[in-house]
Design a protein around this nucleic acid. Structure first.
Lengths: 124, 124
DNA sequence: ATAACATATGAACAGTTGTTCAAATGAAAG
DNA sequence: CTTTCATTTGAACAACTGTTCATATGTTAT
């Protein structure tokens, strides 16, 4: 009857209160930093566009210049360039200049792994 | 001087033409279906929001009801419910009803793997 | 210098997305 | 039945995103 009872399955209170306070405490303690989780979402956001996925897939096979990627994907050079900038900023691709043309390639094999993981999930 | 020369590194034409036509042909042949690549992007789009990432991370540790997740993440029940619907449609979480409350949990271990992959990329 | 070409960039626009608010289910208890 | 509470849902709104268009860099050749 005392109001200060140990928290149990149910606790009286305004709507929106938690049903399992102790569970919440223990899970909260194990949660990574808010910032890290935000960065994680930001990373996946890079892969969340089909144009960027296509560009990365193309670069799986060969280093390529912007206008070739554009021709291959049947898109504007400008559109491709904009997306390459996003990929570049995320350090997922690197580039190399040779005269007038700029060749892009995958920055490392992590990209392959992550996309492969997604593919695996889809194809099962 | 003939216009019908074999394609080489450079081909005359309007700006926007491809620089390496044969490379393009071979890469195009190896590209997965447009639809598959679109679905892949759609999958990553689910992970591309920090609220959904947080929800999934919470469910790593325990099955939970909506209002507990809301309390834990300090967000509206409505907002959480909306996002759970997205996760449910993507078959990333499953649910179980017990009286008035609905408990959500991870659908399978693929979620863990994919998020783990992203974490690994971030933390190196 | 100018011309031609590959790429990059900025602004603008349409389309999408996440949250909030209010209202509607659904389920147990009085 | 009505009440209470957990959850869901729909509409509206602000914020964000990708493409297009026009223009600016940067590089090579004449």
């Amino acid at each position: 009857m005392a109001e200060e009872s140990i928290q149990e399955g149910k606790a009286a209170g305004a709507p929106g209160d938690t049903l399992h306070p102790d569970l919440i405490s223990s899970v909260t303690a194990d949660m990574p930093d808010e910032e890290l989780l935000y960065d994680l979402a930001e990373l996946f956001r890079i892969f969340a566009d089909s144009t960027r996925i296509k560009i990365l897939y193309v670069l799986f096979e060969a280093e390529m210049c912007v206008c070739d990627i554009a021709a291959l994907l049947n898109m504007t050079q400008s559109a491709i360039s904009h997306q390459l900038r996003v990929l570049k900023q995320a350090k997922l691709v690197k580039f190399r200049r040779e005269g007038k043309t700029v060749f892009y390639s995958l920055a490392d094999d992590h990209v392959r792994t992550i996309i492969g993981m997604g593919m695996e999930h889809l194809c099962e």
